[in-house]
Amino acid sequence: MTPITLNHYLALGAVLFVCGVLCMATKRNAIGVLMGVELVLNGANINFVAFAYYLRDPQGNAVFLVEGQVFALFVIVLAAAEAAIALAIVLNFYNNHLTVDVDTAEELKG
């Protein structure tokens, strides 16, 4: 078995990212779109943490050990905030339109 390198983690992050983008593109349910956003953020998070773990200088010190994890923490916190606001908007939308289909949100069309 080949040893696991940084590239493996980056590939996993890429898969999650693409799944998230596809989810945002194909789902018509507003909450489904929200799930796509979560997947995208997770893909990015995997990259952050993997870089924090693997990227070392010639002396073997982890260069961005704290940075990668701090950024991942901030992403998690902001994703929670984003989900809260997005769900509030979706609930409002549902109250007005009785559906969460994003295609019906066209009132602002010029």
Binding site: I31, E38, Y53, Q69, I76, A80, A83, L91
Partner: peptide, 28 residues
């Protein structure tokens, strides 16, 4: 990859919080 604090945060915030909220939104 040794990021245990981030992992626990991921579980408690995402799985225990955000996802429950999402399911709540779906049910409503």
């Amino acid at each position: 990859v040794g990021a245990d604090f981030v992992a626990a945060t991921q579980l408690i915030v995402y799985v225990g919080g955000t996802l429950v909220l999402v399911i709540f939104g779906v049910m409503l």
